[in-house]
Write a protein that binds this DNA or RNA. Structure first.
Lengths: 212, 212
DNA sequence: ACTGCACGCCGATCTTGACCTCCACTGTGC
DNA sequence: GCACAGTGGAGGTCAAGATCGGCGTGCAGT
């Protein structure tokens, strides 16, 4: 339960690790604790204990708690935006694009649920540095989809952004719900369902104006 | 800027207020501070100062910071769920239902943006009591829509819930984006846009199966 | 009308808890 | 056998939640 996969469990004696490996391990331990407890409730003592090292080591690798958190956040923020971008760039068929984007969200939630919760359930959104990064993620995802919508439907940028935010929200919330509900529906099925919902919603937009 | 509409500004001398009025005023001040700063960054000193009273008065009305927060949260949680329920019950036409639900979200964001941010951007989701209430809101909204979807399309409950969560996410995120972006699109237009997106997405579901 | 009472309010304080550093120890290379 | 590097646990500091003695005000009784 408490043991993490570090290299110190051989005798309980401390083991020497190269700095880069130690850093990676500290990041992993920090991620587990931050996700489980949230930023505020997570104590540096917990993270150090989780990693099987002492607190000074932590401070030799990171100047403080915030920097440690931001390092994790940055990594995952980049990953999410990159995935959505890839989904848009991977094909020219818009139906496929929607499917790929939805799959990106579900993949992320499925395989990196910790990272997902770290970014989207952060209890530090009020901090300017964190808020900026999280908003950047949503803006980035929305922007990627917005461009596609504009070039295909010709609606104004403001309208396209609104639609894109709706699609992003649908994928995000559905994926989150699917995870929280214990994956009751097989993943492929869930993806197909949400992709269909999104695609039918967006597909017919260029044909009709935007009147009520 | 700093003055709140209390009755203490006449001379700078404290004014005696009946308990119920004082309580209401404290709740209003707390809401402003919680929304502006988030739960953790909000200090009881700030709330007291905002209300124009001293800290002990706060503790004479509420046992602690958490209870104060939960009192606010409960009020608004009930309000949101009630609005979505009303949107479902107000008509039998499903297209109108979607429109009403979307309008409910935008109305809420437009007129009670503080309450919206308090519930949906809470930095206390890790606390069990808060998590329970917030999840109850989303579950409530999803459930209300789920029932309608089931009775109209006949898909399984698990699938209907997933679709409902997608719709809720779309409305929620779009409304949030619309607010954060400074209401660049007129409200009615934005509502119509998101309603159209949602309706087109969900309307054709009974006709076609759920294959990929 | 005057006095004592009770109540609500305020300034100043205490304490807890968490982030962030200092002394004794242990195992290793020459 | 000896210096050294890195670890572990104990402590300082500070912010923020929670609380105690004094003060001023309005009211009841005579």
């Amino acid at each position: 339960m408490t043991a993490v996969g570090n290299g110190a469990q051989t005798t309980g004696r401390p083991t020497r690790l190269p700095r880069s490996a130690r850093r990676k391990q500290l990041l992993a331990a920090a991620q587990e604790v931050f996700v489980a407890q949230g930023y505020h409730a997570a104590a540096m003592d917990d993270i150090a204990e989780r990693a099987g090292v002492s607190k000074p080591v932590l401070y030799q690798h990171f100047p403080g708690k915030m920097e440690l958190y931001l390092a994790l956040l940055d990594t995952h923020c980049d990953a999410i935006v990159a995935k959505v971008h890839d989904a848009m760039r991977g094909t020219n068929d818009n139906k496929e694009r929607v499917g790929a984007a939805v799959r990106a969200y579900f993949d992320f939630v499925d395989h990196e649920s910790e990272a997902f919760r770290l970014v989207f359930e952060s209890d530090l959104r009020n901090d300017p540095a964190v808020r900026q990064r999280v908003e950047r993620v949503e803006q980035g995802c929305i922007a990627a989809i917005t461009d596609t919508i504009i070039s295909d439907t010709g609606v104004s940028r403001a309208h396209a952004e609104l639609l894109a935010s709706g699609l992003v929200g649908a994928a995000e919330t559905a994926a989150q719900f699917w995870l929280a509900g214990g994956r009751q529906v097989p993943k492929a099925e869930a993806e197909a369902l949400v992709a269909a919902l999104s695609w039918r919603g967006i597909a017919s937009f260029p044909l009709q104006g935007e009147s009520a």
